[in-house]
């Protein structure tokens, strides 16, 4: 063995596990910081729902509003917000990390594995809630009145944000499982049946046949109903019931989507 003459330093910093909370916030902070640096990934998520909200109101307000006896601007506002918050995630950035080896670099550190995913989701939650607000403001600007007042508005944003968060479980599961950007982009197709096979444009009572059956089992139906109740109804038992159903729907969907994402994370970080 070769003897090597070195002058050893007297002190070294002591590397140690940082702890779950520090890991979580460190990963989340990095993810949040990336968002304004990639405006192309955020701007469409803001413009598209506002565009369709205004378009739908212009095109369908008189017909649907009169036929269903509803204020179509209020009826469609939850749809616009759901459009804004659904499918927005850092899953593509995660795939980039996997492909360029940065994910490996992170896993060589003492970071706990769960924050590698939850940190991204935390950033997503902040982003989707931030996206919900301008859409909400457009609605207010067009004359939508929240009968549940400011608390209802706040709950509206939080519930929308949590929905957006649980939906990210699907693209994250795909990202972690495949490490393939194409597959992650393709996950957006899940958005369409979940969003449109529901009470997106008309109340459930107006749906017929198979679409009504599908809408009955689609969690989006209950999420929209809960959000609409916060807009159009005052605080009452039916409102609480509708919001409760929405929370249950979000929870059930989240149980599946987040479980899939966690399973994919476990597979990804398990050393082959």
């Amino acid at each position: 063995m070769t003897d090597v003459a070195v002058s050893r330093p007297t002190t070294r910093v002591q590397a140690r596990p940082a702890g779950f909370v520090v890991d979580l916030f460190s990963v989340a902070q990095r993810a949040v910081r990336q968002i304004p640096r990639e405006p192309a990934s955020v701007i469409p998520a803001l413009i598209v729902p506002i565009f369709f909200y205004v378009l739908n109101i212009g095109a369908l307000s008189k017909v649907t509003g009169a036929a269903a006896h509803i204020d179509f601007k209020s009826f469609e506002l939850p749809v616009a917000v759901v459009f804004a918050v659904t499918g927005v995630s850092r899953a593509s950035a995660l795939v980039t990390d996997i492909q360029n080896g940065y994910f490996d670099r992170l896993t060589i550190t003492p970071v706990r594995r769960l924050p590698l995913l939850l940190g991204l989701m935390m950033a997503d939650l902040a982003l989707v809630m931030a996206l919900a607000v301008p859409v909400l403001l457009v609605g207010l600007g067009l004359g939508v009145h929240f009968r549940t007042g400011v608390p209802g508005m706040a709950l509206f944003v939080v519930l929308s944000g949590i929905w957006g968060l649980v939906f990210t479980g699907l693209p994250y599961a795909i990202a972690l499982k495949t490490g393939n950007p194409g597959a992650v982009n393709a996950s957006f197709v899940l958005f369409f049946p979940i969003t449109f096979l529901s009470t997106t444009f008309v109340p459930k009572a107006a749906l017929e046949g198979w679409l009504r059956t599908v809408a009955t089992y689609n969690p989006m139906t209950y999420i929209l109903a809960g959000l609409r109740a916060l807009v159009s109804q005052s605080w009452s038992v039916p409102t609480f019931t509708a919001v409760g159903d929405a929370v249950l729907a979000v929870g059930a969907f989240g149980l599946v989507s987040i479980s899939l994402a966690l399973l994919a994370l476990r597979g990804r970080v398990r050393r082959p």
Binding site: R16, V22, R33, T109
Partner: peptide, 17 residues
């Protein structure tokens, strides 16, 4: 998309510094 300093700081955080 990080600056060099941000990357180093994150790395240091994850090592509990």
């Amino acid at each position: 998309r990080q600056t060099g300093r941000e990357l180093l700081d994150l790395q240091a955080r994850l090592y509990g510094l």
